[in-house]
């Protein structure tokens, strides 16, 4: 089976003062339908990896960086090299979904409109999909009609998951999706994300520091840290 996304031989450095942090990704390959858990302590390069995968941060160099769409594939490294931001934005719009730590919902749109925005951005009609999704995750009609500020943290995260999945993206990136809720709720939310992604057939990359959220069936990636004098090298490896 062809991979959905592959990032191989990638290096990304960032400097702060005279200290250099270097993230190395020898091989990060996702098959369609995978649920990938990227776990690690803070400062290990989780965020940098996520930025690379979210197509908002260019890698310094890669051996191979591509996104696969059926039979064809898009050479992402080439898009970065040529500075084709519009094409990258279009891929983000169409094929990626995001769940941020606190949801990342727009405060000025109702929950329903926030979810529907993912469809609107792609010129797709609602056709009752928002309501259907909301029902599976337990968001009531009054909640849909409210602005996100009137929802609890858990409800907001559920809404964020729905927005990330609404336009049937190939890949959903979840960045610490449960950081703002308690342990019990966190497990429920991740369970729902798992279930919905499986139903929708989306690949999920979940970045978390909470290893208890990781399932044994998940594809797991972690980081090996080597600290030298002025330099920290973190290598992202599959466990």
């Amino acid at each position: 089976m062809k991979p959905q996304l592959s990032l191989q031989g990638a290096v990304r450095c960032r400097s702060r003062g005279n200290h250099t942090f270097e993230l190395r990704v020898p091989d990060f390959t996702l098959a369609p339908g995978d649920f990938v858990a990227v776990a690690g302590a803070s400062g290990c390069g989780k965020s940098t990896l996520l930025d690379l995968l979210a197509l908002v941060l260019p890698p310094d160099s890669t051996r191979h960086f591509s996104f696969h769409l059926g039979d064809s594939s898009v050479d992402l490294q080439n898009l970065w090299n040529t500075g084709d931001e519009a094409a990258l934005a279009a891929i983000r719009r169409r094929h990626l979904g995001y769940v941020l730590q606190t949801g990342g919902l727009f405060p000025f749109l109702s929950v329903r409109h926030n979810i529907r925005l993912a469809l609107d951005l792609n010129g797709a009609a609602d056709d009752g999909r928002v309501d259907a999704l909301a029902e599976t995750i337990g968001l009531s009609a009054p909640m849909l009609a409210s602005k996100p500020q009137f929802l609890s943290g858990g409800q907001r995260q559920r809404a964020a998951i729905l927005r990330a999945l609404a336009h049937r993206p190939r890949v959903v990136l979840a960045d610490e999706p449960t950081a703002a809720v308690d342990q019990e709720l966190a497990h429920r939310i991740v369970r729902e994300l798992r279930r919905l992604a499986a139903v929708e057939g989306s690949t999920v990359i979940m970045v978390t520091h909470d290893r208890t959220l990781v399932d044994e069936n998940d594809v797991q990636y972690g980081f090996d840290l080597h600290a030298e004098e002025n330099r920290t090298v973190s290598t992202c490896k599959r466990h």
């Binding site: 934005a89 995001y98 727009f106 000025f108 925005l117 951005l121």
Partner: peptide, 13 residues
Amino acid sequence: RDLGMMRLLGLPR
């Protein structure tokens, strides 16, 4: 943050 989110969701500059 909202503007960044719009960019993340794929709105061009």
